[in-house]
Amino acid sequence: MATELTFSEEISNLLYAAEGNPINTCIQCGTCAGTCPAVEFMDHTPRVLIGMIGANLKDEVLNSNTFWSCSSCYHCTVRCPAGIDITGLMYALKRYSMWKEQYQEDLIGPEFSESFVKMIMRTGRSFEPVLAPTYVTKYGTRGMIEEARTASALFLKGRLPMLPKKIKGIENLRQMVKRIIPVGGPS
């Protein structure tokens, strides 16, 4: 009879194949928090979050905006004296929280990630004019006006394409991805 993994073990397993050291080697020094350029927008610093994972505070971790505020700049990773790939951990937590469908309601990251992947599966390319409506409504009135001003300025300079382009062999790409990730329904 298999024993159930703790949350901390589950997250460690997600990083099992990564290059860095396991997260339980963290010495809580806070170099990551001091380095992170987005730390003031996080509800917990990376150091605190790693401590929370160790303490198995699953709900608190998944409801945190910390990993969704990570811009993947790898500055913490290259500076971590314990050699932990903290950026890799943030990616792992994004995947885990989407897999468990547990995340803060007002975040744009999870929905954006989903619509982005769906778009790539549809056309093989990113196309902002179709993506934008999926998130811009969450910006509030002022943010939406700002984005509209920016978009129209880009359009006037001929920097916004009007029609999405599909890659050649998109059907083959879909078949390829299906061999790696089950995308719903029996294969």
Binding site: P37, A38, F41, W68, S69, S71, S72, C73, H75, L107, I108, G109, F112, Y135, Y139, G143
Partner: peptide
Amino acid sequence: RCCGGSLIITNRKA
């Protein structure tokens, strides 16, 4: 130092 990358979409303020 990071420019924010795709946070410009997902976390505009940051």
